[in-house]
Design a protein around this nucleic acid. Sequence first.
DNA 1: ATGTTTCCACCTAGGTGAAAACTT
DNA 2: AAGTTTTCACCTAGGTGGAAACAT
Lengths: 193, 193
Amino acid sequence: EGVDDGCGGGVSMQLLQYDLWTKFHNLSTEMIITKNGRRMFPVVKVKIRGLRPEKTYMVYLDMVAVDTRRYRYVYPSSRWMVAGTGEPLGQHTPYIHPDSPATGVQWMASPAVAFDRLKLTNNKTREVKGQIILHSMQKYRTRVWVQEVEAGACWGDLPHLVDQTHAHHASFPETTFITVTAYQNQQRTGEAS
Amino acid sequence: EGVDDGCGGGVSMQLLQYDLWTKFHNLSTEMIITKNGRRMFPVVKVKIRGLRPEKTYMVYLDMVAVDTRRYRYVYPSSRWMVAGTGEPLGQHTPYIHPDSPATGVQWMASPAVAFDRLKLTNNKTREVKGQIILHSMQKYRTRVWVQEVEAGACWGDLPHLVDQTHAHHASFPETTFITVTAYQNQQRTGEAS
DNA sequence: ATGTTTCCACCTAGGTGAAAACTT
DNA sequence: AAGTTTTCACCTAGGTGGAAACAT
């Protein structure tokens, strides 16, 4: 339940499927990205608490570039090694959770706010809705945001309402990953939760 | 754009895919229901106008039993004929549109509020969420409701908030159908919209 | 040759129409 | 035997891992 918070207030976010993520963190740490976009495995699921029930919030996610290095998987030792300098840190438009906007009651009633529709891609040419563009072979960490918006806000306008200076956030060390376009570690398997 | 309204106010609902529904009304008028639930074809899609932008509404749908007769498809003439008395008129819990609750802005921004997830069933034993239970071989008409609710309402509580006396409604003659468990009319085909 | 990306056949989940089964 | 219901194989859409292709 690693949690930092940006903005004071009692808002808390807890990463679910903690065992799965721990295993991921120990064994693999690699996340596939493809041209057409690939879903994350494991899926980021969080439990959100401490919202004001009647207020309206949107929830969104972005990937924090941990550094500007490039990584390579080295076979004899089966470890990730630094392999030079990567792309400079950039800002991408966050992925807005499809249930947004919704009231505090709704977000908290849900046992798990899941980002299972999110896709990761390396296709820089066309920006597709629902996909986050990342650089290959670089290290990222998942970060989730909760931001209050006006009750009348609608889905289409949400991207313009993103204001990270007035939002709560949490990032989860277990979700740190290195982007690949094909699995490097052969131990990687896809068991369900 | 057949519209009746229950409650005054400028709320209007228009049935979309009118050509498709007209063809349905002229050629077929039969709707499949199965044990496990079957989606409607055509799908009910409506355009909603005249809501107060900032207010919160839920939208739901029910099936009005047109009469208590039982119908049979007679082949030589290829027509539906009355074939005796059916089940008495009953009340079923309405199907709440999965986007509920949402603000007036959101409902009106959508070019078509579609009930494409709705399933119709003849399975009276277990009441399944997302399915409407109907009697076979009887005649029904689709009716759509719009009801204002408090901003803090959440999905799980909506069924208890249904109050048809304080809701707008519209029913569409073109959507009148007779329930069957297998197609009677061989001309029935499933072209897309 | 090695490291990286794209492509593609497999697999799965779920919806559909028609054959099979059931009923009266 | 006719009418009605259920079952089931086909089809489709979309996600996945490994094979093929590409690049350095």
